[in-house]
Nucleic acid binder design. Structure first.
Lengths: 223, 223
DNA sequence: CTAGAGTTTTATCAAACAGTCAAGAATTTC
DNA sequence: GAAATTCTTGACTGTTTGATAAAACTCTAG
């Protein structure tokens, strides 16, 4: 009998091993080339097995893709879940940003996979977004609103705040090619990460308006 | 004789019309499905012509893609080019952010096309990025550094500052599918845009730390 | 109005690709 | 250790897709 990944039943040692190898290879391919761009041959090759063998574990290309996404969305939302309503607002936000940035550093393929999917209109995971992501964002947006009402953080639209944290952090994974061109080879990956962390902390906490205003009164530009 | 898009020569009326129609159809397809995901048939169909006829104007699929990118990169960088070194720093940044946000609203397909290309490692435009984008960013980063040294804006890494403006604004085009799920259908596109603009202004100018500074003194909010 | 340049289409091809099948090899179970 | 089950593979199928050839048609300059 055949044992398919989607069915709920006991998995053999070989099944577990091979499915893991397939999913890792698929993550590599899908994140680099998108759904259409990745080929089963390529994935099978990278997983070190024949195409028919791969298709023995996952009937269709789309099944691999969906298994990947389902497995990842959970991990992906973990940092937001950890935002603690009982914690201090600014430190909470600060560490949420840092966690997201760490994920961009440590799981760039996952980030790109999601980006690719959303970019194309999220045809395959729109339902998942509605059932998993939206309620979580709504919940945490309420937490943020509470902090705002208490005057603990500036009053802004909490959902747009979350968007901006997602976009600025994931940028370093999704647009890595561009980041590397702009920053040049001077600083290694680790240095870039620290620079980004430092910058984002300043941005989100203090913004760009000078904190200490030495020049008060009518402003005269000096040049 | 054949008249190819890449060759520099006079173009007939029909050539101009058809190339424009092809490029528009291609933008639609490439931005929605990526390079591999878009098919010539699909593009030809959307442009209202037969596939061989399309290939009469652009020999290869990649030629269409490259023509598109070349035409767009210039427009895409225009807002950054307009950042005026002689202007007031905060208003300059504010309007740069707004211009970028307007582009995300008005040219979402273009934004997604670029995002798709960068996401996959920018294999086809890395050279263009190095020759066009990097020098411009370097130049404007110097401008920003000057403003920081003069104490007119907070001291941060200017290139990361630019990244954050790109990522937060383009997010609304590139991740539109997700944004729509999270925000729900309550607010129309125009309302969303205004919310985003307001939020980003607060974020970039003041950050999230509650403002202790009362708007006192002769200091006039100049924008 | 016509010759030649420019444009469009029909027919076609080869490669790439997702997915199937049946038979054989390996592993587990009893 | 034999039977049952699970795993693996080579050969294959039908389709999609990027691209070409050449004939037929249209437009425009003179």
């Amino acid at each position: 009998m055949k044992a398919r990944a989607t069915e709920t039943q006991r998995k053999t040692r070989i099944q577990k091993e091979n499915e893991a190898r397939i999913l890792d290879a698929a993550l590599e391919s899908f994140s680099a080339h998108g759904f259409r761009g990745a080929t089963i041959d390529q994935i099978a090759d990278h997983a070190g097995m024949s195409k028919p063998n791969l298709l023995y574990y996952f009937r269709r290309k789309q099944d691999i893709y969906e298994a990947l996404i389902a497995r990842l969305l959970d991990t992906w939302l973990e940092p937001l879940r950890e935002l603690n309503p009982a914690g201090d607002p600014l430190p909470e936000l600060r560490s949420y940003i840092r966690r997201k940035l760490e994920m961009a550093r440590d799981f760039p393929r996952e980030s790109r996979l999601f980006a690719n999917e959303i970019l194309q209109g999220a045809p395959r995971i729109k339902r998942l977004l509605e059932s998993d992501l939206k309620p979580l964002v709504d919940e945490k947006a309420e937490v943020l609103r509470g902090w705002m009402k208490a005057g603990q953080i500036n009053s802004v639209d909490p959902r747009h705040l979350i968007f901006s944290i997602w976009s600025t952090t994931q940028h370093y994974a999704d647009f890595d090619a561009q980041v590397q061109v702009v920053l040049g080879p001077d600083r290694g990956a680790e240095g870039r990460f620290e620079d980004a962390a430092r910058y984002l902390e300043t941005l989100f906490l203090d913004g760009l308006r000078p904190q200490v205003k030495p020049d008060s009164g009518p402003r005269v530009r000096s040049f």
